[in-house]
C-alpha cells in the first residue's frame, strides 16, 4: 500500500493528541501521510480528496458521545457531493471514559455514512480511557496488555484490507469494577480541583454565565 491510496484522517483539533498518536501507529505499518481535518473554512475541496483514496482511516476524539462537529460537517459535505466508489472506511474513536458504550456512537455514524454513500465499512476501534494518554504511546494505557495487541491486530486488518470485528476492541477492554472506579473518580476529581485552585476558581460557584445574569 502506498501513500497515494490510503488517507489517514485525523479529526481532532489537537495535532499531538491521542487521535494523532493512534493514526501514527497505523501509518507505521500502512505508509501514507496523516492529514488533519481543517478547522476553518469550507470543506468542499477537502471532501473531494477523500474520494481519491482507496482506503480511508478516520481517527478522532469523542466529544459528548460521538465525533466532533467538524467531522460530522465533513461527512455531510462529502455526502452532498457524492462520488464515492467502494472506498474502504475504517474508524477509530477515543475518549476519556473507560467504557466502550460512551464512545460507540462515533463508529455507528461512520458505518451509516458508509452505507448511505457507497463506501465499504470495514469496522473500527473504540478506545476508552484514551484521553488520559494525552498523545502518549498506547503502551501507557491502563489496559495495555490487552489493548496494545488488539490495536496492532486492527492495524493489520487495515494493511491487509480486511474487515475488523467489534469483538476485537470489546474483548480488549473490561470496565473497571466499583472499587477501582471509586479510586479513579477521587483521583481524577482531585486533579480537576487542583487545576481550578491554581487558577483561583471555586468549583461550587454558580456557572460564569449565570453570574453575569445576576
Amino acid at each position: 500500500m502506498n501513500k497515494y491510496n490510503i488517507m489517514l484522517l485525523c479529526a481532532s483539533p489537537r495535532r499531538k493528541g491521542t487521535s494523532a498518536m493512534l493514526l501514527e501507529r497505523v501509518r507505521n505499518l500502512t505508509g501514507g501521510d496523516v492529514v488533519f481535518l481543517p478547522q476553518k473554512d469550507s470543506l468542499e475541496e477537502f471532501a473531494m480528496t477523500m474520494k481519491q483514496a482507496e482506503t480511508i482511516v478516520i481517527s478522532g476524539p469523542c466529544y459528548i458521545n460521538t465525533y466532533p462537529a467538524r467531522l460530522i460537517e465533513l461527512l455531510e459535505t462529502a455526502s452532498r457531493s457524492g462520488g464515492f466508489s467502494g472506498q474502504k472506511l475504517y474508524g477509530i474513536i477515543n475518549g476519556g471514559m473507560p467504557y466502550i458504550h460512551t464512545h460507540r456512537h462515533g463508529l455507528t455514524t461512520l458505518q451509516l455514512f458508509a452505507e448511505q454513500n457507497h463506501l465499504s465499512w470495514q469496522g473500527g476501534f473504540v478506545l476508552g480511557g484514551g484521553a488520559m494518554l494525552d498523545g502518549k504511546p498506547l503502551e501507557n494505557h491502563m489496559s495495555r496488555k490487552k489493548v496494545v495487541p488488539a490495536f496492532n491486530q486492527f492495524i493489520r486488518h487495515i494493511a491487509e484490507g480486511s474487515s475488523s470485528l467489534d469483538s476485537l476492541y470489546e474483548q480488549a477492554q473490561t470496565p473497571p469494577g466499583r472499587f477501582v472506579t471509586r479510586i479513579f473518580s477521587k483521583f481524577l476529581t482531585s486533579m480537576v480541583l487542583k487545576n481550578l485552585k491554581k487558577h483561583g476558581h471555586d468549583p461550587n460557584a454558580p456557572n460564569w454565565y449565570l453570574r453575569q445574569q445576576g
Partner: peptide
Amino acid sequence: FGGVSHHIK
C-alpha cells in the same frame, strides 16, 4: 447518520 447535524453538534 444516526445522530444530529453538524450545526447542532
